[in-house]
Amino acid sequence: MESTLKNMVAVLFGITLVASAGVGVVNMITVEPIAQSKQAATTAALTEVLPPFDETTSEELTIDEMPITVYTATKGGVVAGYAVQSMSKLGFGGAVRMMVGFDPDGRVVNINVLEQTETPGLGTKMCDEGNPLLGSVKGQRLEDKQLVDGKLAVRKDGGDVDALTAATISSRAYVDAVNRAWMAYKSVATGTPATDVASGASQQTNNEPAAQEGGQNE
């Protein structure tokens, strides 16, 4: 019996060792392609939101305890624009991540939504080309907008950003992420410390009725 127990333990140990080695090998094989895929996605997003550029340098910031990356793009040694990988945790379905591009004068070049889990056909329209959210800021200097407490806001909250139809919560998350990108851009472009956005979007919903199926309290 003692011999059999030892054999069983040895076999189990051997299986565990082989399995662990297998996991390690798979990780070694996949880590590089995953990193390359992420880099390719980032490069594609930068291309979509920036004027033509030769190269970029990046700077990591933390705003509202969220990681924000600012890419400074140059062409011929001159700053061509800034792209900010920003996010918001206020989405109807969870986090919304995006890349926001600014020209050297601070005008929004374009916005590329990188990740969202919003309601199909409602909040997901933030990804559509020419959607009202993007149309409200593209080509504009955000400081020239109708701001609320120094920040962008949808019309329902006193600003002049057009929200998606039946998706105000998603729209607020989009604007929240843009505000965070704007704050990060200004910090890197002017050298001023980044300050928290502390969006009031979640507070704006406190007195609204509970979300209905297929809608977002809109």
Score class of each variant (00 low, 15 high):
L5N: 07
V9F: 14
A10F: 13
A10C: 08
L12T: 15
I15R: 07
V18L: 15
A21N: 11
G22E: 06
G24I: 10
N27M: 05
I29P: 00
T30V: 13
I34G: 02
I34M: 08
Q36M: 09
A40L: 03
T43D: 02
A45W: 00
P52F: 04
D54I: 11
T62D: 08
E65N: 14
E65G: 00
M66C: 05
I68H: 07
V70L: 06
A73H: 01
K75W: 03
K75N: 12
A83L: 04
Q85H: 04
G91N: 01
F92D: 04
F92S: 09
F92V: 02
R97N: 08
V100E: 00
V100T: 04
G101R: 02
G106W: 07
V109G: 00
N110M: 01
I111V: 15
E118H: 14
T119H: 11
L122K: 13
G123P: 10
K125G: 05
K125L: 15
M126V: 07
L133D: 06
D149E: 11
G150P: 08
A153M: 11
D160A: 13
D160M: 12
V161C: 08
V161D: 02
D162P: 04
A163L: 03
L164Q: 01
A166Q: 12
A166I: 14
A166Y: 12
T168R: 04
S171H: 10
D176S: 13
D176I: 10
D176Y: 08
A177V: 13
N179K: 03
N179I: 07
N179A: 07
N179P: 06
R180N: 08
W182I: 08
A189C: 09
A189V: 05
A189R: 11
T195C: 00
V197W: 05
S199Q: 09
A201R: 09
S202L: 13
Q204R: 04
N206H: 07
E208R: 05
E213F: 14
E213Q: 14
G214T: 03
G214V: 10
G215A: 13
